[in-house]
């Protein structure tokens, strides 16, 4: 599902540098990205999503070479192919649960919001236990509930790849287990590929594979 080869990436305003000789995530698998802070876990997620573009190397996601696409094409690819979940949820406080879930349809301009989308949003919310809170502003939800809204938003357009950046990082143990349960239930039911950044080593046995970003980090140190 994701193939990164001979990648060299550097932020233009920082000394941070990431070199990834080989990185592979199989379709339908669940993969955890681990490593210390600053090892490039989030950067790899952003590269796989086409949000960032490497200076060198190839990033092929869902059989599409993102490094050959322009910004507009990468955006179109991202909308249809990738669901993103962030550690801080990144919900819009002024919108209700329902509107936050539907946000990808409203903000992209590439997808026309239909009754089917509304139905799916309601279905997803119901599926994660938020069916009775559709009209509630997200500011009035608990942390766990917010992350569930963020997951529903990521799943609205039924993406084959789910990229999660520490989705349980801000949650208490109860909510952590619940959110993870939701994610795993979904990806297994729909054979969705899941690539997740996590610091929580207790969760690792639940993933098919764990990739330690320390290796890219060590390489970076050598290069210095």
């Amino acid at each position: 599902m994701i193939q990164i080869r001979d990648l060299d990436f550097q932020y233009h305003d920082s000394k941070f540098r990431l070199r990834v000789p080989e990185f592979h995530v199989a379709r339908g698998s669940t993969v955890a990205l681990v490593g210390p802070s600053g090892s490039g876990k989030t950067t790899i997620l952003n590269l796989a999503a086409g949000i960032l573009v490497p200076q060198q190397g190839q990033v092929v996601t869902n059989s599409v070479n993102l490094t050959e696409l322009g910004e507009h094409q990468r955006r179109a690819f991202r909308i249809t192919t990738i669901g993103l979940v962030f550690q801080e949820f990144e919900l819009l406080e002024h919108l209700t649960v329902f509107d936050n879930i539907l946000l990808p349809c409203r903000i992209t301009g590439a997808i026309r919001l239909t009754a089917a989308h509304r139905e799916r949003a309601a279905f997803l919310a119901n599926d994660v236990g938020l069916g009775d809170k559709l009209d509630r502003h997200v500011g009035r939800l608990s942390q766990g509930e917010r992350q569930r809204v963020a997951i529903c938003r990521a799943l609205l357009l039924e993406p084959p790849l789910l990229l999660c950046d520490e989705p349980t990082g801000n949650l208490d143990p109860g909510n952590k287990a619940h959110v993870l349960q939701i994610l795993f239930d979904y990806v297994r039911r729909h054979r969705t590929t899941l690539l997740t950044v996590t610091h929580d080593h207790q969760l690792l046995p639940q993933f098919d594979e764990t990739i330690d970003c320390q290796q890219f980090h060590e390489l970076r140190e050598v290069l210095r």
Partner: peptide, 14 residues
């Protein structure tokens, strides 16, 4: 908020 909207598919123009 704007960065998030860009990540989930919004263009700067939009």
């Amino acid at each position: 908020e704007m960065d998030t909207l860009v990540k989930i598919g919004g263009t700067r123009l939009r």
